[in-house]
């Protein structure tokens, strides 16, 4: 029992890192995703094609490989940039979590693009026309009417993607970020009791996911209340 509690506490102590990874990946991913979704909806010439290519490439790449590419690739780019511009950039100062966040954000952004695009496109065109008829600009219409409605519709998908982010953040352990998975590895190597420790960490992941699931459904229920026609 003591073993269970000790390890549980040790792993919980880095749970904030796991949550930080998931939340930042979702926030950055949603920002990129919103931009890509709007580019796709309005079919902006040329950039639209770049976005399609971006989506295809990232969607077809395992997160683990994105993680490695960010971890090994970005320092190299920065290094050659530093040499060619004789700027004093040092990659050693950058904590590894930075690269993990980039990789996870890219991965989440492509799925969020789809979730946001489909949600926006499910809003009847009459809503946009009504905005125009009272004299709003397209930006005002999106900000005040279209996006708020689309968010409600997107919540179930976003909630899934968020839980995915929590679980995928475990891959950050491979680039030496000490989050829950990495901490479990450390504990396991020290005690040789792999099975027990991985059961403990899986319970923790499960608990975190359950918590967030609960939060998301509460948000959804609150936003749906009286607001949307079914």
């Amino acid at each position: 029992m003591q073993f269970f509690v000790d390890n549980l506490l040790a792993i919980i102590s880095v749970a904030p890192v796991t949550i930080l990874l998931a939340v930042t990946a979702m926030v950055i991913g949603a920002t990129i995703g919103l931009g890509c979704a709007i580019i796709q909806i309005y079919k902006l010439p040329f950039i639209n094609r770049l976005v399609s290519l971006y989506l295809a490439v990232i969607r077809g790449t395992p997160v683990l490989i994105l993680m490695f590419l960010a971890y090994y690739g970005i320092p190299q780019i920065l290094f050659s940039l530093a040499q060619s511009t004789s700027l004093n950039i040092s990659v050693n100062a950058v904590p590894p979590i930075f690269f993990a966040i980039i990789a996870l954000s890219l991965d989440r952004s492509v799925y969020l693009t789809q979730a946001i695009r489909s949600a926006i496109q499910s809003i009847p065109n009459g809503q946009l026309e009504a905005c125009y008829s009272v004299g709003m600009t397209t930006f005002q219409a999106y900000k005040r009417v279209i996006i708020p409605q689309a968010l409600v519709i997107a919540i179930p998908n976003v909630s899934n993607l968020f839980l995915g982010a929590v679980k995928e953040s475990s891959l950050a352990s491979i680039v030496s970020v000490v989050e829950m998975m990495n901490m479990s590895n450390i504990q396991a190597v020290n005690s040789y009791r792999y099975t027990e420790i991985f059961i403990i960490v899986s319970l923790l992941y499960w608990g975190i996911c359950l918590g967030f699931e609960f939060i998301f459904s509460a948000i959804e229920r609150r936003l749906m209340k009286g607001k949307m026609t079914v």
Partner: peptide, 15 residues
């Protein structure tokens, strides 16, 4: 902004 419209399907802002 000089005109206003009443729609067949009302188109009230659902949110």
């Amino acid at each position: 902004r000089k005109t206003a419209m009443v729609f067949q399907n009302y188109n009230l802002f659902a949110n």
